[in-house]
Simulated assay, not measured.
Amino acid sequence: MSFLLEFLRAPMTVGAVTPSSPALARAATAVVPRTGSPVVVELGPGTGAFTGAVQRRLAGHGRHIAVEINPRFARRLATLHPAVDIVTADAADLAAVLAQHGLSQADVVVSGLPWAAFTENRQRDVLSAVAAALPPHGVFTTFAYVHARWAPPARGLLRSLRSRFDEVVISRTVWANLPPALVYYCRRPH
């Protein structure tokens, strides 16, 4: 219920009426390494649908920083996931968030951001921040709803991803999500 309430309060920052499903969370976080000490940044974690999946993949290794603009979501996440560094900030300020944690880059960035609700300039600013925060081996994942894939904002997002990454792979449809979604796996940032 809190997700719907937050959507009604701020539809341009929440962007959905229900949280992502466990199936979508598994697909979006599949690139998080299970070994080593990776730095994983989660953008727009909302109520934590992807947060739990990232934590399970990390299994106590690495660092997990979640950047949430909604202070109510951020407070709830901090309570539910004390091992995660929760930061109330704008995703476009990713470089500053990393610097506050003594970091210059992240190995993986997982996004739950509502791209279709963003203006073209906002998409550009956030994607530029993401690409700048990833090393050559870094990976960025985000998702889109299948029904909106052909709409101008979704087509613009895919164009923007392809202009910032050498490789953009689109997953199979995740039918076990409301609405069905697909994941973009983006590698080798420019």
Score class of each variant (00 low, 15 high):
residue 79 T to Y: 05
residue 163 S to G: 09
residue 44 G to L: 06
residue 46 G to W: 03
residue 178 L to I: 15
residue 187 R to H: 09
residue 159 R to W: 05
residue 183 V to L: 11
residue 115 W to D: 12
residue 25 A to G: 08
residue 17 V to L: 10
residue 9 R to M: 03
residue 91 A to Y: 12
residue 174 V to H: 13
residue 14 V to Q: 11
residue 26 R to L: 09
residue 19 P to C: 07
residue 47 T to C: 07
residue 133 A to F: 06
residue 135 P to Y: 01
residue 74 A to M: 01
residue 6 E to S: 15
residue 103 L to K: 07
residue 11 P to G: 11
residue 82 P to M: 10
residue 181 A to D: 02
residue 54 V to D: 12
residue 104 S to N: 13
residue 27 A to M: 09
residue 140 F to A: 06
residue 75 R to L: 07
residue 53 A to R: 04
residue 150 W to L: 14
residue 109 V to A: 08
residue 73 F to R: 03
residue 85 D to L: 09
residue 150 W to Q: 15
residue 75 R to T: 08
residue 61 H to F: 01
residue 143 F to V: 00
residue 152 P to Y: 04
residue 48 G to L: 07
residue 126 V to T: 14
residue 69 I to K: 11
residue 132 A to C: 10
residue 48 G to H: 07
residue 76 R to P: 00
residue 54 V to W: 12
residue 17 V to M: 15
residue 117 A to V: 02
residue 90 D to P: 05
residue 93 D to Y: 00
residue 61 H to M: 01
residue 105 Q to C: 12
residue 38 P to I: 04
residue 137 H to N: 10
residue 10 A to V: 01
residue 76 R to F: 00
residue 133 A to L: 03
residue 173 T to V: 15
residue 42 E to K: 11
residue 131 A to F: 07
residue 31 V to W: 05
residue 110 V to Y: 11
residue 114 P to Q: 12
residue 148 A to H: 12
residue 154 A to P: 03
residue 77 L to V: 00
residue 104 S to R: 15
residue 131 A to P: 05
residue 158 L to M: 05
residue 76 R to Y: 02
residue 86 I to Q: 09
residue 131 A to I: 01
residue 138 G to M: 08
residue 35 T to P: 00
residue 138 G to C: 08
residue 1 M to G: 14
residue 15 G to I: 00
residue 41 V to L: 12
residue 112 G to I: 00
residue 117 A to Y: 06
residue 155 R to H: 02
residue 32 V to K: 09
residue 36 G to H: 07
residue 45 P to Q: 11
residue 50 F to R: 02
residue 50 F to L: 15
residue 111 S to T: 04
residue 79 T to C: 05
residue 140 F to P: 02
residue 160 S to M: 13
residue 124 R to K: 10
residue 20 S to W: 04
residue 134 L to Y: 09
residue 52 G to W: 04
residue 81 H to M: 05
residue 82 P to Y: 13
residue 168 V to I: 05
residue 84 V to P: 05
residue 185 Y to N: 05
residue 172 R to M: 09
residue 147 H to K: 12
residue 41 V to S: 13
